[in-house]
Structures are given as structure tokens and as C-alpha cells.
Design a protein around this nucleic acid. Sequence first.
DNA 1: TTGTAGGCGTTATCAA
DNA 2: TTGATAACGCCTACAA
Lengths: 343, 343
Amino acid sequence: MAAKRVTIEDVARAARVHASTVSRALNPRTRGLVTAAVVERVRGAAGRLGYVPDPVAAGLRTRRTATVGVLIPDIANPLFPPLLRGVEAALGEAGYTAIIANTDNDPDRAAQALERLAARRVDGLILATATRADPLVARCRTLRLPVVLVNRTTDQARASSVASDDALGVRLAVEHLLRLGHRRIGHVAGPAALSTGAARRASFAAAIAAAGLDTAGAIVEAAAYAIEPGRVAAAALLDRHPGLTALVAANDLIALGCYDALAARGLACPRDCSVTGFNDMPFADRFAPPLTTVRLAHRLLGATAAELLLAELAHPRLPKRQIRLAPELVVRGSTAPPPGAPA
Amino acid sequence: MAAKRVTIEDVARAARVHASTVSRALNPRTRGLVTAAVVERVRGAAGRLGYVPDPVAAGLRTRRTATVGVLIPDIANPLFPPLLRGVEAALGEAGYTAIIANTDNDPDRAAQALERLAARRVDGLILATATRADPLVARCRTLRLPVVLVNRTTDQARASSVASDDALGVRLAVEHLLRLGHRRIGHVAGPAALSTGAARRASFAAAIAAAGLDTAGAIVEAAAYAIEPGRVAAAALLDRHPGLTALVAANDLIALGCYDALAARGLACPRDCSVTGFNDMPFADRFAPPLTTVRLAHRLLGATAAELLLAELAHPRLPKRQIRLAPELVVRGSTAPPPGAPA
DNA sequence: TTGTAGGCGTTATCAA
DNA sequence: TTGATAACGCCTACAA
């Protein structure tokens, strides 16, 4: 059946016009240059023959592939699937296709992936892997590759970005704990090399200080946003400050590590110690106990990043924008008044 | 800096050979045709100039894009991220790139995605969305697009496939429950239109019959592999058979629905009723209670699918293969002896 | 072993 | 408004 490919020449013959006219008639941007009647004839012929334009050939000529690269740390981190859905939806709407690459939080792999995607001639890049001093942003400038940061940002605002308002999120968590009566609150921070780790930590310190409490030393940094590093850091924190009645974790996976560290010491959550997370990852409501956390609109995060990038692709000289989405607190079963508090 | 693109012509000039020689020297398959000394000179020049071959241009000429399409129902289903990692790893090894598309279990979206990927000239397709009578497999044949099925299969073995041994998995779950002393066991099945739903249901019935028990009517089908449909189906099942002491769910999300249905009736799991899942999705060990389930090697599933496809790309006339990976039972906290059983 | 020539399917530019 | 032409960057018969 569909043995041989239908090309623009075949359509041209069938419509009794030149191939370039077919191209113009079929391309929405140039359709205005062609008589309406001819457009109809061409579309009819194209439909009859089952013509499908070849984006590879068009890309060779136009230097655009209608393709966007997406670098993420690890798709197995439940934060990212919804984000990717948002990216995909927004790109798809505009006729773009996403090419996703995992970097495993490894800068070398990220650099490699960037080169591979650039070689594939992606039109732009969405970076969910940025460190605060990420060399990839500069590399994109060199390659003249439009880039948008999502979730994590760099210290220098050389690219547009969409992220959560980390400061607000942590403040909501701390204020919730203060309202419950907690006075000895610790923080298991994320990596300081990431904007999220640094911002959440700073906000924690500020919120504690604003309450007139002392936070010195009640912060330990986890080596990565994952359960086991979270457990290790939480254990160290509890060693140093056995009297803590609440832990603010820099994200939900670290919060799970806090669960483990508490369990290992025979402490019950939330009875002996409350825990809060960040992200409201899928199934956070199913954990034991259900996790009180700060909810991010992950899908919106991805969709917004895609739209920022599409805007830059359409208008290359657009000023960079930094968008912060406001998160909200979701109270579940992992937080309660501190032990000994009046009911 | 990298203002202008470095082409094969530039390298040819620098190495004082013809462009076609550069092409041959740089392509592993044709390198043997070129003198070693010339190869060295070419590679040197290419390295110095920072030449990166353009896969778009090469693809136009060779009709191959080193690209594979992957259709999945929904990346937000935790089953798929590890599977995709496996696909990505195996493809990357061979220099291929995956292009992922979500279909939301919608046949129309799946068909659309297939056409889009075909238009993009993917070299092959990995289908994780197959229904038992999926028209997309035939469409791939028409398009002469190599295709491999993963996780779900079609009734007709017109394509190679990798999936779990569903029969074995369910048998393991049922036998575990029998050993615990359960005699009234129900099944919340997956959609009958999917190979997994049908196979797991048949295996459940067979295992119950083999134990000399009566299963008539103790099966209800969930409308989809998701929590809420699972809850609805489990509720219907419990209405019809209030005496059930164990539920075998067709997958982990349906198992979570069973949790909800039991809770709504004031029944405790596992004290009043045991529940088993299927897949061992990430975080299944974190649920309340931790889920006893059948573990699949998801990453291996994906990697194997990719390798099957790569083999077919290399040798188009290869016979189709049907691979079944053996799952294993993971016993956790959601199963226990039936109420009233001797400790 | 290397060079020559042609073409993959499309679109931009120019001319009519 | 439409047609002709060339070019995007690469690969592969074929010729030398």
C-alpha cells in the first residue's frame, strides 16, 4: 500500500501547479500569497494522495525542527512526570515535540545530553537540572540555543525561568508548625548548590528568626533530594538536637527519610515529632502517616516553561522573565501539636 | 564564537581531502575503506574545528533518524518512569534517541501520536499502550514501521513483545493467600480489553479452581487501572460478597482503590481483609499498610523492549519473539491470616 | 583508496 | 500570484 512516499512533487502534479506553490498553499504562514481557489485544489490533491509533509526535509532547509529538548534530573522522581505532562501539552498545542533526557543529577551527563540535543537541532531547551552556577546556560548562549529554566534556577538571571516561590512555601510550613505550638524546629535542607536548597534553607532561617526562636545549628543539609540522604541527614540532626519536635524537610523524599530516621529512634510521627515536606508529590497522601506538605502546581510549572520558551522562539529578542508560582500548604497527618501540649 | 555551522566541507578543506572521504572516515561502518593515516587527519581536523555531524541532513539522505517513538498510556502512572529509563538506557547505548508520547489510554490520541511520530520519521516504535485487538500494530505494518510491544500485548503475535508472566504473578499472589488460610478470595480485575486484565483474571480463576474453591461471581472488573475505578469495583465486589477475606487486585493502583473501599466500610486491612497488588510500583512499600504485591523488573522490561527493537532495525527479517519475564512476590503488610484464624 | 556527481524533500529567493 | 532555481548537509553509487 503505502510503499512509496508521497512527496510535494506528487501533489504538485496532481494539482497542476508547481511544487513551491504547494509549499506555500500548505504552510499557514504563506497561504495568503496563494489564490484561494489554488489553495483548495492543492489541499484536495494533498488529502487525496495522503500527503504528509516531511519535517526532516523541511528542517534541513529551515534550520528549525519543531523540537524542544528537556533535561530532567530523573524521571523516576515523582515530581517530574506531571511537569513533563505540562510541557508536552503546551508544546503539542504549538506543533512542537519534546525530546526528554535524564541526567541523574550528573553534570557530565547533562553536558553530554545538551550536546546531543543540540546536534539533533532542537529549537530550544527546557532545563530542569540547573544548579545555581550552571555552565549549561552559558553553553546555550554560545550555541544560540534559547533556554528556559524550570523548578530550579541559576543565581544569575541570564535565562527566563519558572519556579515555585520557595520562600513562601517554607514560610507556610513553619508558620503551620508554630501555630501548632512547636518551638524547637529543625530543617533538613536540600543541596546548597541548588536554588531550591538554598532558598528553602534561607527562608527557614528567616521564619524561625522572625518568630524570635533560635535556629543556630538546627539545620543539616542532605546530600541529595532522595530518601536515603534525607534519612542520613535527619539522623545527624536528631543526634545533635534530640529535643526537636518538628522537622521541616526540603522536599517530600527527604521527608520520607525523616520518617525513617524517626522510626529508627523509636519516635512516632506525628506524636513525638512532626514532619513537613515540599512538592506534594503523587501518593504523598498515601504515606504512613499522610504527609503534610507544600503543594506545587507541577503541571502548570511545565506548561508555563513551555510557553515561555515558545514565546522566545517566536520573538528571539524578548526580555527574560522570572516567574514564581505561589504554592499552598496541604495539612495532613504528619503534623500535630508537640508532645505534652494542651489538646 | 560558534556563529557559523561547521560542515563536512569545512573539515574536508582542513584535511585536504574530499567531503565524501570525510564522510567515510567518520562513519564507523565505512571507515575500513579509508587509509588509517587519512582517517587520522580527518579526525584531527574534525576535532579541531568542532565538527558535529548533522543527523537531520544525514536522515534526509539515509531515511533513518536514529530515533524511536515510545507510546505510553500515562507517564504519571508510576509503572512507566522506570520502564522508560530502561528504554532510554538501551537506546542511548546504540546511539538512538527516544521520543515519548502520552496517550491517556485514548485510542484516538494513540493513533494521532503514531502518525505524528511516523511523520517525524522515527525508525521504529515501542508500544506500551496495546489493547488486545490494537489497530496500531496493523498500521505500523502498513507504514513499514518496526514495532515492539511492551508490558501489554495483542492477542495476535504479529509483533515482538516483552511483558511479565501475568499468569505466574497472580498464581503467586493467590497461593500466598491460600497459605495464609484464606478461602474466600475475590479479584478486582483490570480492563478485559487489555492483555494484562484478561490474563490476570484467567489466572486468578484457574488458581482458585485448582485449590478446589468456588470463584463464581467473586470477580469484578475495574474500568481502568487507576485508584478510583478500583475503589468502585472493589465496593461492588464487597457488596456482592461481604464475606471475602482477601482481595487480589489486578495492579497496585487498583489495590489502593481496594484500601479505600475497605476503609469506607470500616474494615481494616489486613486485619479484616487482605489485599495484594501487581507491579510493585515505586513507594508501594510506603503505603498504609505497605502493599504485598507482585514485583516486575520494570527497567528490564523497557531495556529488553528496546533491544528487541534495535535487533529488528538491524535485521529487518528477524522472526518475532515473545518474551515473558518472571515476576516475584513481595510480601509486606497488607496480607495476613483471615480473621479468626489460629495465630 | 579516493574523487565526482546526484539526490534525499523542502523552502527561500528571485524572476516572470 | 506563480514558476524556476538553488541550497540546506549529508551519503552513496559509480568512476577513476
